[in-house]
Design a protein around this nucleic acid. Structure first.
Lengths: 210, 210, 210, 210
DNA sequence: AATGAATGAGCGTTCATTCAT
DNA sequence: CATGAATGAACGCTCATTCAT
């Protein structure tokens, strides 16, 4: 799971291209050209185009997992605070790695690659586990309702974030941002909107209070 | 926009394959073989592989629009009832055309095909318009809150439905269905869960009551 | 060798297209479309695309031969007058059927079609025969030199006419025609130039006098 | 404009095949097979079949131009001697590159390829320019007539050479060569005949003396 | 007599990968 | 360690032709 400088550079370029044109729609020549390397290098460094994708998943997913784990252990926060932090964390993560998120969404539907599938499943499982743990904590303290469908909750979070980021342009067509506002300003706006929206939803789901 | 029997058959097979392997990952030979026709027929009937995809979008999207339009005009229903019906309608539609929905999701991210993009945009716009109309009706009757972010609402609905259906298998691994339960039974279960879940969310969003 | 109205119409269109894009470069669909008939008609009427070409050769070559034959029998003309008439006749014929001439030139170099080849050979033979006869007549009357290479003479006539008509545009770029002069006016100009030029050459070849 | 050993080999084979079957009639698979290489190599080396043709034109035309240029500068020769040398040079060149000449003739009539067309035009212009220069020299020395149509003159040269070489077989059917005479012996014979014939014609055109 | 549907073969090109150096 | 040349397979598409009606 350790990559050389060159490999990381290739991964980054591959990520951009896969996101823009899809895995099948991106040729190794595209990647090689953009990376300023020989076509043969992709096979040389990663074994195959398929394995390059696997490497991308391992690299990106691996780097994500760590931060969330620590959150749950923090004793100074209430369960709901933890949930809210987790939402912010997730929104932040997706918006920051939009390209990889795109790839994840499409590959999830199409790929038969076992390595990719297992990476994805592991990630999903961990997500559900984490939230389940947080919720149980809140239930023990009588702060959350008894019956909560965690999977559905997670689906709402992931789905809403996905749908919102993927249709970001559409959103700004209906709600035009102030003239001259930068792309990164818009990103911050979207993040805030998402955060507030999802937190409100989760609060209802968990506490039954609006 | 009228298709012959043969064309419809090809569209159906193409839909299955595009959903399973993506547009780029599906060759016209794949389609031809599964449809029991000659490769040349795809070009013969649709002009090109690209135009076959466009035809698929036009055919599927066109057939959907009608039912929703009538809903809003029904004077015997309260605004919330209409919203709830619309949710059921949407859930039903997606679950029934899962394959096309898959294609829509992936192509939306990747395609540069102007015809496909415009079909998609038009569909999204119509969705937002319809719901906006419903909400305004509710607001006039003082049944809904004043400030509702319709786009975010729609994103939650679409995103949740998508995330749930696309991860249906994952769901049943965590919540095993009774042994021997059929696939269509599971579909009904998912539909009900989605319907209840989203209705609850929308009620809060619209009325501020849990 | 008898063609129906429809067949003649197809032949005419095929002639135009073959001249413009070559035999291989022209598809039966091109022809059918331009003729407003079904693709199947080409095979139906002529048997095949190849046989359509054969038919074109037979039809066009057949119609040409007749006029020249009479020329030689005319007793009121001197041998040189006959030669000059023959030159005019040839120039006229080529310029009038430029398209077919184009096809003849290209197919001559490429085709392996035995029917086409034999049509061409027969035409060439007849040309040489005719001129040989005329020259012998002149020699008998001591008006022409004894040693004349008829084939080379014919080559110069055919070659010059061909090279001139095929480069007609190039010619008018170097010698711009008066502004507003029509295409048919230019054709007449080219005809006259060719006629004078070749007659002068032939006179020298045949009589050794400039 | 520099080609590798392999590229030159492919160009040579392509030249033979294009001459024999035409550009459209020759498939890249034909070329690849005859060259003992993979089909993909044609695209790899030249970009496309079309560009292979362009490369052929550039390579062949480029190599020709040089020799003629020097001729005109030679002060020790009279204008008529120069013209005669130029004729020999041209005859020699065409007979030596008969295949390319064939391709030139056919493509000239059919191609829409702008690169090929411009190569051809440039070549024709240079030819006319060169001869014009030679003739002016002769006119200044009062050795040539005042009114000479250079384009028509060049047309006669090119046309006669073309018509003669392209019908070489036909010629030898009418004037059978001695039994056992080789092909190259026949070529020399044709060259001599052409040289004498055209020189005689040009002499008349230029000096009005037979 | 004439057609539209359908076919199989072949087209030029691009693909991911391999291999000799 | 890295490369550029080369490969075979597959790509989407067009071709002339056939055949049932």
């Amino acid at each position: 799971m350790e990559f050389t400088e060159k490999q990381l550079q290739i991964l980054e370029i591959a990520e951009t291209l896969f996101a823009a044109k899809g895995f099948e729609g991106t040729s190794v020549r595209d990647i090689a050209e953009k990376a300023g390397i020989n076509v043969a290098m992709i096979s040389y460094y990663f074994g195959s185009k398929e394995k390059l994708l696997e490497a991308l998943f391992k690299s990106r997913i691996g780097s994500v997992q760590v931060r969330m784990e620590n959150l749950i252990k923090d004793q100074s926060l209430s369960p709901l605070q933890k949930i809210n932090l987790l939402i912010d964390e997730y929104v932040e993560r997706v918006l920051q790695h939009e390209n990889f998120f795109k790839i994840m969404v499409t590959e999830q539907l199409i790929t038969k690659n076992p390595s990719v599938l297992s990476s994805l499943k592991q990630l999903k499982l961990r997500n559900v586990e984490l939230i389940t743990q947080l919720i149980k904590e809140g239930q023990k303290k009588n702060m959350f309702r008894k019956k909560v469908d965690v999977v559905m909750m997670v689906n709402t979070m992931i789905g809403t974030v996905w749908q919102t980021t993927m249709n970001r342009d559409f959103y700004f067509e209906l709600h035009p941002a102030p003239v001259g506002s930068t792309d990164s300003a818009n990103t911050i706006l979207i993040k805030r909107k998402l955060s507030i929206h999802i937190k409100a939803l989760f609060k209802v789901i968990l506490t039954h209070e609006a």
